[in-house]
Design a protein around this nucleic acid. Structure first.
Length: 578
RNA sequence: GAUCCUGUAGCUCAGCCGGUAGAGCAUAUCACUUUUAAUGAUAGGGUCCUGGGUUCGAAUCCCAGCGGGAUCACCA
């Protein structure tokens, strides 16, 4: 591990601090009296309340002017400028606390505690005049220094040297959060959205519950799961792709309303709107139907938007302004296709639908049934046009095995999805509670599976048994929390609303010593430890990664570590493991 | 999985048609007791993601690999 000049300087400063008799990582608590925002709020009207203030935070900038200095202290609420005069923090002849500790030892990123009084500088900035300064924690890595300037004429804020590299921002989210205040705000808002939603449901008497994340069979949605194994029971377990079937069991058990906010896991592609784990909210309410649910969703979303958006229900999203106050437009799936393509698909059979798809240039394959074909047309031609919140209702029965048949329309189910800004954010049914019908629907899914549909739903006997005991008429709803957050924070990428989005692992340097070897392989002694360092601890891992990749990484490692070894070729590596 | 873009100092970036690297901030030293992208002066810091090829010579061209982004495909 090579340290940069700046890291070396910081380690020297750490030693300096110890030489001065300071503990760079003191154990005791440091009680503060305020956070920065308290002071901005309170000082202008009641300056007399700020004669003795204790703050703690991270130094984000130092402006040293000889015997006096300014610095910026960042705490959880924001930044506060502090003013430090040498002769004030060093009243005696010994000026080391200022000359050494403040000017030299303290680096950008260090945590300090300060106490003093609040005043206003000549240029009008509210500032803490420091009388006492304590080192609370030393930082050994240099932070990106982001500077901002407010244009005097326009009042606009200019940012210089912003920390923007998405890879670094996601891999080192802690750095992102330190230097990019807007990122902190996004995640605060995410938390407020969830809190508001929870309050809305709790106020109506519905019960927050938890259901299994590890499930012996994955049901309730069409998706590929992550598979794991339980050793004691010696059986496969799957990370849930949905919790629908468990929540319905709870309705069978007699609760009138249950909801769960939690992670779901789907082993599928990743992109701007998909992460392998994501957060969803599902709610089931007894004695209701999907028409009632549409009103509930309108109230819920307008309540959430109002709560997190300073009393406004209109939200800017990309180039649009979206109004979350209801009622939302309601359009049947067939009518929406008619509206955007001019084609009435309601009377068509499978062959007719295929013809429509090919005339519209939509790719289809043989495994697709009628419902899937209609969904394809909808996805290609309608979805992207639904900017303002719009309910699409009454879906074909084939693609919705858990929804109740429509009360009056043959071949359809009572289902709606809510689209906003061209994306689905909610999905709801009048839930199917007829156990005989449900069994048939599962059997239809088995047929689809036989036809090659990998995501057809499995038959869950215990769930059917629960329905046979009787489930009241119920309406259920799922909302994608990540996508809702994206909308309300005006972010186009799911990675911006997840603290730690999934990434390929970064190569980290670990030093491995001891006598290591590869059984069943003929690796030259001098390379063994380096293979271990790269994470290749057995033959299987090497083969899994691929010979070419391993050879490449070894060469990169050799160069990086300046090893006195000759480079390797894929052929050589192949020989080692043959 | 496909296509395009991208990987240069701690951070943000420049480096035209190939001649062994530049800026700003940050860092170090000095000056400066109300500054605010503080200022002025001086200095250090990178073998340009990895490997291979073309070439007298490659950060720069070609091939392969790895990481990241975008678009598409997939995925409710």
């Amino acid at each position: 591990m090579q340290w940069s000049d700046q890291e070396l300087a910081r380690r020297e400063n750490l030693e300096e601090a110890r030489n001065l008799g300071l503990n760079p990582y003191p154990a005791m608590a440091f009680p503060v009296s305020h956070v920065a925002s308290d002071i901005y709020k309170g000082f202008p009207d009641n300056p007399e309340n700020f004669k003795k203030v204790v703050l703690a935070g991270r130094i984000m900038m130092k402006r040293i002017m000889g015997k006096a200095s300014f610095a910026e202290l960042q705490d959880s609420s924001g930044r506060m400028q502090i003013y430090i005069a040498r002769d004030e923090i060093c009243p005696t002849e010994d000026k080391s606390h200022y000359n050494l500790l403040f000017k030299k030892i303290l680096d950008i990123g260090d945590f300090i505690g300060v106490s003093g009084y609040i005043f206003t500088t000549q240029t009008g900035e509210i500032t803490l005049h420091v009388q006492e300064l304590t080192l609370l924690s030393k930082s050994l890595k240099p932070l990106p220094v982001v500077k901002t300037k407010i244009d005097e004429q326009t009042g606009e804020e200019h940012t210089y040297d912003a920390f923007t590299d998405p890879e670094l921002r996601y891999r080192q989210r802690y750095v992102d959060l330190i230097v990019n205040p807007a990122v902190r705000e996004t995640f605060k808002k995410r938390s407020k959205i969830i809190t508001a939603m929870r309050r809305f449901f709790d106020d109506r008497g519905w019960l927050e519950v938890e259901t299994p994340v590890l499930q012996p069979m994955h049901g309730g949605a069409a998706a590929k799961p992550f598979k794991s194994h339980h050793n004691t029971l010696d059986m496969p377990l799957y990370l849930r792709i949905a919790n629908e079937l468990y929540l319905k069991r709870l309705i069978v058990g007699g609760f009138d309303g249950v909801y769960e906010i939690g992670k779901m896991f789907r082993n599928e592609g990743m992109d701007r709107t998909h992460n392998p784990e994501f957060t969803s909210m599902e709610i089931y309410v007894a004695y209701k139907d999907y028409v009632w649910m549409m009103e509930m969703v309108e109230q819920c979303l307008s309540y959430i938007t109002f709560s997190v958006n300073d009393g406004k229900t209109k939200v800017p999203v990309g180039e649009h302004e979206i109004e979350f106050a209801g009622p939302y437009r309601r359009l049947t799936m067939f009518d929406s296709i008619l509206e955007y393509t001019g084609i009435n698909v309601s009377e068509l059979d499978e062959a007719g639908l295929r013809a429509v798809c090919s005339s519209l240039d939509i790719q289809v394959d043989d495994t697709m049934g009628k419902g899937k074909l209609i969904d394809e047309i909808f996805g290609a031609k309608v979805e992207k046009n639904l900017i303002q919140p719009t309910y699409i209702t009454d879906y074909p029965i084939e693609m919705t095995p858990l929804a109740k048949k429509h009360r009056s329309k043959e071949g359809l189910v009572e289902r709606f999805e809510l689209f906003v800004n061209g994306k689905e954010i909610a999905n709801a049914y009048s839930e199917l509670n007829d156990p005989i019908d449900q069994r048939e629907r599962f059997e239809d899914q088995l047929t689809l599976a036989a036809r090659g549909d990998e995501e057809a739903m499995a038959l869950d006997e215990d769930f059917l048994r629960a329905l046979e005991y009787g489930m009241p008429p119920t309406s259920g709803l799922g909302i994608g929390i990540d996508r809702l957050t994206m909308l309300l924070t005006n972010n186009a990428s799911i990675q911006e609303v997840l603290f730690f989005p999934q990434m390929k692992p970064e190569k980290t340097e670990t030093t491995v010593s001891a006598n290591l070897s590869f059984p069943e392989a003929n690796v030259p002694e001098e390379w063994v430890s380096h293979l271990f360092s790269l994470g290749y601890t057995n033959k299987e891992k090497v083969l899994e990664a691929g010979i070419g990749k391993v050879a490449n990484e070894l060469n990169g490692w050799r160069k990086k570590k300046k090893l006195e070894l000759k480079g390797v070729s894929p052929e050589m590596v192949k020989e080692w493991f043959s």
